[in-house]
Write a protein that binds this DNA or RNA. Sequence first.
DNA 1: GCCGTTTTCGGCCCGACTGTTTTCAGTCG
Length: 573
Amino acid sequence: MKFQDNEKIASIFETIADALEFLNENAFKIRAYRNAAESIRNLNESITEIYSKPNPKKIEGVGKDLEQKIKEYIQTQKVAYLDELLEKVPYTLFRLKDIRGLGPRTLYKMFEKYRVRTLEDIKKLVFENDELKDISLLEKSIKKIREGIKLYEEGQSRFPLGVAYPIAKDLVDRVYKIDNVKKVEIAGSVRRGKETVGDLDILICTKDFNSVSKALANLEHKQIIAMGDTKVSLLLSNNMQVDFRLVNEDSFASALQYFSGSKEHNVRLRDIAIKKGFKLNEYGLFEKDKKIETKTEEDIYNALGLCYIKPTLRENKGEIEACLANKLPNVVELGDIKGDLHVHTNYSDGLMSLEEVIQEAIKRNYDYIAITDHSVSSYVANGLSVERLYDQLNEIDKLKDKYKGKIHILAGSEVDIKQNGELDFSDNVLKDLDIVIASIHQGFANSKEINTKRIISAIENPYVNIIAHPSGRLIGQRAPYEIDIQKIAEHAAKHKTALEINSFYLRLDLNDEHARLAKNAGAKICINTDTHTKENLDYMIYGVLTAQRGWIEKSDCLNTLNYSQLKQFLKKH
DNA sequence: GCCGTTTTCGGCCCGACTGTTTTCAGTCG
């Protein structure tokens, strides 16, 4: 649940923190503002309501001073301190911090000395001068900033998981071929399964740092960003940065934990370590100066009095509290998935024939597969007319016989939800199908109320089993259409209609947060690939990672059921 | 600016790399 005033105050505190950073204020003061922002954002009730009570409860990280500022905002809708800071730091500078190699200190010096305010100002300054002695920028720094600006303008700051993951895996294979490399692991946000990632972190276990780092610098790259004893950073040809970290065997577990993040999770962990009299860093867990042996990440968590927390859960979104209360979810794994319930064939816009799809599903050891081509309104996707649908049903009937004992085949359809909320096929047709998916492919611009209503009417249809890609977003390409996900999840739970986590890496829809919300509302989740090509079938992993991030357990999922349980669920009544 | 089961003052997570420095500041994760 999002609260607008919480969001607003959190963002004011963050802006104050940014401004203080420019002004080179005490780093801990800056952190205090950020901590407070984070904690307000994570509240489960409206902050206005909290402070409207006579004895408001304590909010973590909010002391006397910040409490005063919150009250000021509630009364006047503004915080004077922020306005004061914005007099000193022009707002246009804030975004420019994203330029690699250009931090708040340098930016502010540029502003003080040269009055730069915009990207254009900075470009003029650094491309027309080879050095700026009065702000301690000589040739090399200027060059770095120029390169940072180029990257910034190309806008390649984050990559979809589905792009980053295969590159990371390929690099791991290459690094394994280097002499003296003992172990290689992907760390960072790729390991945590985040939907987009800024760079790759790859951890390497070796005894010979020198020869390995030289070999890393010989991997294909566009530019070497950094090269030290324990770290080599390369810029790949697609502008993706990869950081290789070298560690020896003793430190491998703690380094893997450390470099997997998230930063917020690690801060919490180190805090727990300190309270227990330990020190935790990438080299190990220490008691005074004595190193405690930790062979695995699990050893580290256990030594801190915690159970093992999977990387996908490490976001400081309640996982540590859940762990302490013995309530950590046992999240769904790829191996739990028994079938794919959203697949297209060349009857509509897929590239595989019916039989190819079935054979590929058998190769993946699935118990069942659903054929769900588009319905008639999806012109661009070559949607099936009623006649063509029944032709397909006939062919599927024959294949059900042919593959009996090998795989269960479900005949279905991905039916469009039309502008008025009606479905593309009548109930008379839908009743002949084994499974029905409903989804929106048109009318994205409708209001939140209308789209929510359209989806709810589909949920209530007695033949609809799954709502596919509920928000319609395409990461980096198309914003989600507006829906009330809470309301949708509540209706889905009530009417035994599952909500999909679409595994296609530009969709991942439901996203992690929405999936968690849907689960909490009691809705069933179905992780599907929406396959159009053979390769798409392997994207299931991205959906599973997203589900894990949403705390989805095996028992929350539709397609972890065996075939007879699944059939039972699909009957709806 | 926050916080306290060793503290109401003195900590706050921690370290690597680079560049311009010869002891450190800035950036990054």
